[in-house]
């Protein structure tokens, strides 16, 4: 009986200690349509935690006192829910990228078998159209030379999509 209690306690200890480290795996994160491999990702019931170093590498966002920021863009984290987004253990600082996506109304698609995560356009990017200002983009031509819509500012533009299929 005593042995059972001991092993039960040990198991309980393992169960509380494990989630932080047991599911660390390699994941692919697609952000702004660019894929980045991340070696230490934690997937916990459809939540994706990555280190803040990987956050910067995969998304260019950084956690700062004023919020999660990239260049001029900054999204403040709700003060009462900081622990939903950031926590420290194993000598690293971890960030919940899926919780952040929910905060900024960004769609996420996930393939669990291949540990691949796709982060789509945030609502602020999608709402740009209602300003009637044409969303800018940069794409290559057949020779690989990159062109931006904004390169044609000052001229009338007929933007036409087509496809080979």
């Amino acid at each position: 009986m005593k042995a059972n209690v001991c092993s039960g306690l040990f198991l309980l200890f393992l169960l509380t200690a494990l989630p932080a480290t047991a599911k660390e795996l390699h994941a692919t994160i697609v952000y702004d349509d660019a894929a980045t491999g991340v070696n230490a990702a934690r997937e916990e019931s459809d939540q994706l935690w990555i280190t803040t170093a990987d956050l910067k590498r995969a998304t260019r966002f950084e956690v700062k006192p004023q919020g999660v920021c990239r260049d001029e863009l900054c999204f403040p984290l709700p003060k009462s829910r900081q622990q939903d987004f950031v926590h420290k253990d194993s000598g690293a600082s971890w960030f919940n990228l899926t919780a952040f996506a929910q905060l900024v109304h960004q769609p996420v698609a996930h393939d669990p078998a291949l540990s691949t995560w796709y982060f789509g356009l945030r609502s602020d990017q999608r709402q740009m159209l209602s300003s009637l200002q044409a969303p800018d983009f940069t794409l290559p031509d057949l020779n690989g030379k990159r062109h931006s819509l904004s390169d044609f500012h000052g001229k009338k533009i007929l933007l036409v999509t087509w496809a080979s299929w």
């Binding site: 009338k156 533009i157 999509t161």
Partner: peptide
């Protein structure tokens, strides 16, 4: 970015990018 659903789709954009 433009919510397009088919090809060919055209959009006219003026000199001010609108």
């Amino acid at each position: 970015l433009y919510n397009m659903v088919n090809v060919p789709t055209g959009v006219w954009i003026n000199e001010k990018g609108r």
